[in-house]
Design a protein around this nucleic acid. Structure first.
Lengths: 108, 108
DNA sequence: ATAAAATATGAACATATACTAATATATACA
DNA sequence: TGTATATATTAGTATATGTTCATATTTTAT
C-alpha cells in the first residue's frame, strides 16, 4: 500500500494494485460453478431471476446474490418489465473467455 | 448429483459436472492476486522459487504453495538444476487469457 | 389502500482459501 | 557422513466465500 508507486515504477515485473484487483475480481467471478452456470445460461438470451433459479435448480436468493455479484462487475445487466427483471450478459470479452474455456474443457 | 444424467441429456442449458469443475478451477487459479503476479512474472522467462519470492516480496512457502496449486492444474511446469527448481508457464491458452485481461484492465 | 408477484437484502452458518511459522525433504558437495 | 542450499509440506489461524432462511422492498393490479 505504502510502496505502490515504487513497485509500479521500479519493479516493472510486477503489476500495480489496481490492475491486480480488477483482473483477480474478473477471474474470481468466473471461478464459481454457480456463476458459470448462470452466465452460460445467459449466453443466448435473457432470463428472469426466477427462470434462472428454476432452470438451474437454485434458490431464488442464491441466484439474486450471484446476479448482484455479476452486476457489480458489470458482467450482466437487466431490464425491467413490471415486477420481473430480465438479466442478460454485458461483457463480450468475459463471455468469450468463458466460451473458449468451456470448449477447451469439453473435448479434452 | 443423482440427477446429473438428467441434466446432461434433458436440460441442454446446463453444463455437466466435470466441465463445470475444470472451468471453475481454471478461473479460480487466475482469481487470486498472488497467483496472477506469479504467472505474470513467468510470462517471459523461467524463475526459481526463491527468485519469485524475492521479486514479488513473498515468503518462500507462500510461493511454493501457490506453485503447487498452479502445477496441479498444469498451468506451470519446472525443470531441476541441482537443488534449484526453475518454474515456467505451461498453458498457452490460460496465459493468453491472462494477458488479454491484464491489458483490458490497464488502459481503462 | 391492500394484496400478490418478483426480486433484493441481511444475518447466520459452514466451508474454502491464503498466509505463516516451523519443520521435513531433497540435492550437491566437502 | 555431515552440512549447506533450495524447496516442499504440515498444521494452525484468520479471512473470504457461497448458501440458506427469513424478511424487506418494489411494482402492478384490484
Amino acid at each position: 500500500m505504502e510502496d505502490k508507486k515504487e513497485q509500479v515504477e521500479i519493479d516493472k515485473k510486477d503489476l500495480d494494485e489496481e490492475t491486480l484487483f480488477v483482473v483477480s475480481q474478473t477471474f474470481k467471478a468466473l471461478g464459481d460453478p454457480t456463476r458459470i452456470r448462470i452466465l452460460n445460461l445467459l449466453f443466448h438470451k435473457e432470463f428472469s431471476v426466477n427462470r434462472i433459479a428454476e432452470t438451474l435448480h437454485l434458490r431464488q436468493s442464491t441466484v439474486s446474490h450471484q446476479l448482484r455479484f455479476l452486476k457489480n462487475l458489470r458482467l450482466v445487466k437487466y431490464r425491467r418489465e413490471g415486477t420481473t427483471l430480465y438479466y442478460s450478459h454485458d461483457d463480450e470479452h468475459v463471455m468469450n473467455m468463458l466460451k473458449q474455456t468451456i470448449e477447451h474443457a469439453c473435448h479434452n
